[in-house]
Design a protein around this nucleic acid. Structure first.
Lengths: 200, 200
DNA sequence: CCGTTAGGTAACTGTTTAGTTACTTTGCCC
DNA sequence: GGGCAAAGTAACTAAACAGTTACCTAACGG
């Protein structure tokens, strides 16, 4: 068993991600992270400095990921519950990712696949809300759908529903206006008008 | 200060609701619930039996509430994170509430206010997802919208967006089919056909 | 007015947990 | 190969916490 600082660090981080995703900050145990990582607790303090710091590192590592997985949604939930909307971890990277998705929505609107009359940023967020909802609140799916909530059937019905909802909207081929400001934040038409700036 | 068992109990329950909503099960402190309630810790064990039991009671008290408040959404999140979709608290009451809402959606579809071609149960859940999203994930609203996320402006834009989205869908006046099964669960058309049963 | 019951209090206990200390082992450069 | 810094270990500490014990006091029925 050769010593490898980087690997130990990576093991600890991975263990922290699953521990925090599973139990949240307050529920997570530093000892458990250590044993999951096959490392000693002392190493966590050596590499990261403390429970708070490793929580932050675990968030930063996962929150910029692309796909909406259950682990990611759970971390979002813990983030929201424990940190609210202040002091957001990895904000620049996440904004960039969001801007890319909004642009993708925009292109889909231009292709007529999504209703062009809607604000692309809000529309992207709405799709995210619909995607994340069953992962975030499985118990509500059970409450609303009963035995229809069996994962396979439901997943199919839900994606079908989302597609139908989009599909049922009119498809004007108007080119939606989308501007990105300095921070890469989409500035779209629902906002109160501002003096026009030339698009970049 | 006259003694009043019911009032003390109610105080404890209210304090527990806000403590658990604020910090979750693992983060909540029994001592803090007691002092928030102006009561002694011993009384919590007297009236409820333990931390788990009072968490359950707090969930049961709030989860059947009508409106989608921030406190309620936070409790949903803690519920999902800590209990998943197994062993759902107050299931019958919550099913009843859900069924009422689905029926309301159904009536709105009949009035042509919502697209009739969509499964009413899924549509109701989708509206819930959109309503709850900004309360559940305020940090994502910030990531996606930047300074457009200031609460007042956003709230207006978001409700407007939801209305537009619905409004943009076609309004066939087809009567949607809705059946409730024994458990009060909506059985609607997206489900694979079953041999027809007479409606109750 | 007295005794019993239920509401209420404070101090305590055993355990869990974040964080530390003192120590050993490994790799590596000279 | 020896010395040194970094990697790793185990045992410890101080604080926090859920749950308990032993005790007190207001109300109420007789």
């Amino acid at each position: 068993m050769p010593r490898d600082s980087d690997r130990t660090r990576a093991n600890i981080l991975a263990a922290a991600v699953s521990e925090f995703a599973a139990r949240g900050y307050a529920g997570a145990r530093v000892d458990r992270i250590a044993s999951r990582a096959g490392a000693n607790k002392r190493m966590i303090y050596h590499h990261f400095g403390g429970k708070k710091a490793i929580f932050q590192a675990a968030l930063a590592e996962q929150l910029t990921m692309g796909s909406t997985t259950e682990n990611l949604v759970r971390l979002w939930m813990h983030e929201a519950l424990e940190r609210g909307d202040a002091d957001i971890v990895s904000l620049p990277e996440r904004r960039k990712l969001a801007a890319e998705r909004i642009e993708a929505t925009c292109r889909a609107q231009q292709r007529g696949e999504l209703p062009a009359c809607l604000d692309p940023a809000l529309l992207t967020m709405a799709r995210l809300a619909l995607d994340a909802f069953p992962l975030a609140f499985p118990q509500l799916v059970h409450v609303y759908l009963g035995n229809r909530a069996t994962s396979r059937d439901f997943r199919k019905a839900w994606t079908g529903f989302i597609a139908d909802w989009h599909g049922s909207a009119p498809r004007r081929r108007t080119k939606p206006r989308l501007r990105l400001d300095r921070d890469g934040i989409a500035q779209a038409a629902t906002r109160p008008r501002e003096p026009r700036r030339p698009d970049p």
